[in-house]
């Protein structure tokens, strides 16, 4: 159980200075079912207002780290502090602590079908605010505002099975934004979206960041990295952080990107000649854009 001191530190952190760190992960190690490693001695600090991209191939551990940052998984070894207080399974069982943490951190899952679980869009968006103790009136106001902001007001009474993939993503984001979190975690936000929804989402993320939200994105999409992140954290396939820097530097480091399997040497024939050039994992997207 958290001590009174923890809670006090937690509350004090809210009105802390602009450049204050909000997340600090130290030497976190995690394995699924105690058998399948996902994080291997990972340390990371995130400051308020940053746009951080967690880069890596499938299964490198970036999604696992997001879940640790959202207090859904807990490191087997190592620690995780958020807003100055340690986040543990026991701490989150405290109602006040849980509410404080959940309101400040929002998570947009990769699979919108898992995130949109309510009978209608309206109830979906209301779920977070209601659980975090908002009154029915205040919740309705937030639902209304957020639906207008994301241009989904006309979907309010729709059931999830009547929504397209892009609409489901909007509803999922709306359901998180309705809690007005300080930090937004996105897991592969642009995956499986049509180009129009993709660019809409990128604009939205930038807008949210400008309004002061901290953004953390797990992705293997190198094409959008320049805009979406001002800092890249690169995971190797043995679940360790191997690089941390601005996107420009990281994207130029072809050798690094090949070593973590984000780019691969791809040889193919063009008539009689053949050449080699690096391809990133999302080469289909980048080809479409060219």
């Amino acid at each position: 159980m958290p001590s009174a001191v923890d809670i006090a530190a937690f509350d004090a952190s809210v009105c802390a200075r602009e450049d204050q760190e909000i997340f600090r992960v130290e030497h976190a190690t995690f394995s699924y079912l105690e058998r399948f490693p996902a994080l291997n001695d990972v340390s990371l600090t995130v400051r308020r207002g940053e746009k951080v991209a967690l880069l890596g191939a499938n299964g490198c551990g970036k999604s696992t780290l997001l879940k640790v940052l959202d207090g859904l998984l807990f490191a087997d070894r190592g620690s995780f502090h958020a807003f100055g207080a340690e986040v543990t399974e026991a701490n989150l069982e405290d109602e006040q602590f849980n509410e404080g943490f959940r309101t400040r951190v929002g998570f947009v899952f990769q699979n919108s079908d898992a995130q949109v679980f309510s009978p209608t869009v309206r109830e979906e968006i209301a779920f977070g605010p209601l659980n975090l103790g908002l009154s029915i009136d205040a919740t309705q106001q937030r639902v209304h505002d957020v639906m207008r902001m994301l241009e989904i007001s006309d979907l309010a009474e729709r059931a999830p099975y009547q929504l397209s993939g892009g609409q489901k993503k909007r509803v999922a984001i709306a359901s998180v934004l309705a809690m007005n979190p300080e930090v937004l975690l996105f897991d592969e936000p642009t995956a499986a979206l049509d180009p129009r929804t993709q660019s809409w989402l990128i604009d939205l993320i930038l807008e949210l960041n400008q309004s002061g939200k901290t953004i953390i994105i797990a992705t293997h999409d190198l094409a959008t990295l320049d805009v979406l992140a001002d800092r890249c954290v690169v995971f190797s396939e043995d679940h360790q952080i191997v690089a941390d820097g601005p996107p420009g530097t990281i994207l130029r480091d072809t050798e690094l990107l090949i070593s973590v399997n984000l780019l691969h040497d791809h040889a193919h024939d063009h008539g009689s000649t053949s050449h080699t050039h690096p391809h990133d994992e999302s080469h289909h997207d980048s080809h479409r854009e060219h």
Binding site: K67, L72, N111, A114, Q115, F117, M179
Partner: peptide
Amino acid sequence: EVHDAMVARG
């Protein structure tokens, strides 16, 4: 996954 999504929203 659904449980995670529910817990994440309080």
